[in-house]
């Protein structure tokens, strides 16, 4: 019975993973990943890791995937759907070759070298294996440092995400505020400030630099909502 369930869930997990790689529309990729994550949680249940399975569904398939769906809807994932697959055939072949090399290496490591020790049903489990009680005890005794570091990491990531995406105009909206001549429309800034946009458009690299008489580029006034608008 376990065998049957394993193959059903593993099949769904692999199909979901393949869907993420193959599907063209990023929105379908996200949905495919949800299928993958849920079947992976069921595999965790087969391995008797109940708490991790529930965390997988609540945290991953729930919270993280909702975040993905919102960002795909916001960015409008299908920006250039035709170009997503326009990686050259050589690059595609190389990528598939490297991936199969990785798989062969992993398969050798799993089946070749450790078959005798791994080919077991596993140790006898204690009654509280995989329960929240056991996980909590381990987190607060043996792995307390990892637990605390993980909480710090989450805090740093949250602050970083807010700093990256929280401003109205994106990364560089507040550039004007940093300069002493705040509020001046013609901010005298160097012609090429080395921003990412210039790097992408090849400004200053493929196009000649503007003459030294150039006073500065025009900064668009950020459209701020003033407090009066709210009243």
């Amino acid at each position: 019975m376990t065998f049957l369930f394993f193959f059903i869930f593993a099949g769904f997990a692999l199909a979901g993973a393949a869907g993420v790689v193959v599907l063209r529309n990023p929105f379908y990729c996200v949905l495919s990943l949800v299928v993958h994550l849920i079947s992976l949680a069921l595999l965790f249940l087969l391995l008797e890791a109940q708490f991790v399975a529930v965390a997988q569904i609540v945290v991953y398939a729930g919270a993280v995937m909702v975040l993905y769906v919102f960002v795909v809807a916001y960015v409008g994932g299908g920006d250039k759907p035709d170009q997503l697959w326009s990686a050259s055939p050589r690059q595609k072949a190389l990528a598939i070759g490297f991936a199969s090399l990785i798989f062969v290496e992993l398969a050798i490591a799993i089946l070749g070298t450790a078959l005798s020790s791994l080919g077991t049903e596993g140790a006898k489990l204690s009654a509280d294996y995989g329960t929240p009680a056991q996980i909590g005890e381990l987190l607060l005794t043996d792995y307390l440092l990892a637990f605390e570091l993980a909480s710090m990491l989450l805090l740093i990531a949250a602050i970083g995400a807010v700093a990256l995406a929280g401003r109205r105009g994106g990364i560089a909206e507040d550039e004007g505020n940093l300069s002493p001549r705040h509020g001046v429309v013609h901010t005298p800034s160097p012609a090429a400030t080395g921003s990412m946009a210039e790097g992408v458009s090849g400004y200053g690299v493929t196009t000649p630099l503007p003459d030294p008489q150039f006073e500065g580029r025009e900064l668009q006034q950020p459209a701020r909502e003033t407090a009066e608008d709210d009243r």
Partner: peptide, 17 residues
């Protein structure tokens, strides 16, 4: 699954994917 993910990272161009 790991190999599929690695192939996807190398093939796809959309940072979301």
């Amino acid at each position: 699954i790991f190999s599929l993910g690695a192939a996807g990272v190398m093939i796809r161009r959309n940072p979301l994917v």
